[in-house]
Nucleic acid binder design. Structure first.
Length: 261
DNA sequence: CGTATCCTGACC
DNA sequence: GGTCAGGATACG
């Protein structure tokens, strides 16, 4: 589910539930999470106070008063379920954060690819990340500068979180369609004018007005998804059948007429 | 650069 | 039974 807008929404929900609250118990249900966080380190979270909940790209950070940070990444299918400690555990709950006030935040993830890690004070929990799309410092010139060495096609580059933080596979295709840029266009050869258009369209598709509902497939037909998942269906601009190709192992959808270069 | 891998569920 | 999935990373 999650690309930047969905993670932003999730972080807000988490913030409302967790900010200022004291942790009572953190539990890991899935072995892949347990491998990364020992029972001993888990127990050290009892009594810790969550001072802030931050989002950076698709990452969520729970800052603790003692300087440590809980880092969560939803990967493909993670989400929060907010309830109370006495509720039945939701299906696919992989971890829970229980607070002293009785709130229980469950990390639900049918695919169990989400990560939850604990970082010591002073230890940066985030990998190298490019600017937020909304950042004023994200400009055609700054983008051009980091693209100069990218000899490959633009679409996989948009998924590189070191270039830009938050764009995922759906919105990469959508942004390129809106910007009339071929997903195969060589990144380094895009002119400043085309990059300006691309930046504008990335901001548009990631913007609140374009946010997807939780089940993105329901958005199909509503007009919000222009190309993603629409192989063979008519382009909304020129009626040419939308094509699906694979780039760097991921599906790309585009209109070969509107996005010929 | 592409490919395999981590997981599980949905769908053909 | 096989294929695919909105992410990221380790590797050749």
């Amino acid at each position: 589910m999650p690309e930047l807008p969905e993670v932003e929404r999730a972080a807000r929900i988490l913030r409302r539930a967790a900010a200022g609250k004291t942790l009572a118990c953190v539990s890991l249900m899935h072995p892949s999470l347990r491998r990364k966080l020992s029972p001993h380190r888990l127990r050290t979270l009892r009594g810790a106070v969550v001072t802030r909940v931050l989002r950076r790209g698709k990452h969520q950070l729970l800052e603790l008063q003692d300087g440590r940070t809980i880092h969560v990444h939803f990967r493909m299918a993670g989400d929060w379920d907010i309830g109370t400690a006495t509720d039945t555990l939701p299906r696919h709950a992989r971890a829970t954060l229980e607070f002293e006030n009785g709130t229980r935040v469950a990390l639900v993830d049918p695919r169990a690819l989400s990560t939850l890690t604990l970082h010591a004070a002073g230890d940066s929990p985030l990998p190298e990340l490019g600017p937020e799309p909304s950042d004023a410092a994200f400009t055609p010139a700054s983008l051009a500068a980091v693209l100069t060495r990218r000899k490959g096609p633009i679409k996989p580059v948009l998924l590189d979180q070191r270039i830009l933080a938050g764009v995922g596979n759906i919105y990469a295709s959508e942004s390129l369609w809106h910007a009339h840029i071929s997903p195969r266009a060589v990144a380094a050869t895009l002119t400043p004018e085309r990059l300006e258009r691309l930046i504008r369209e990335i901001r548009y598709v990631l913007g609140p007005a374009a946010q997807l509902p939780a089940r993105y497939r329901q958005a199909r037909g509503s007009g919000r998804i222009a190309v993603y998942g629409r192989e063979g269906e008519p382009c909304r601009r020129c009626s040419t059948p939308i094509e699906r190709i694979v780039q760097a192992g991921r599906s790309t959808y585009f209109c070969s007429v509107c996005q010929s270069s």
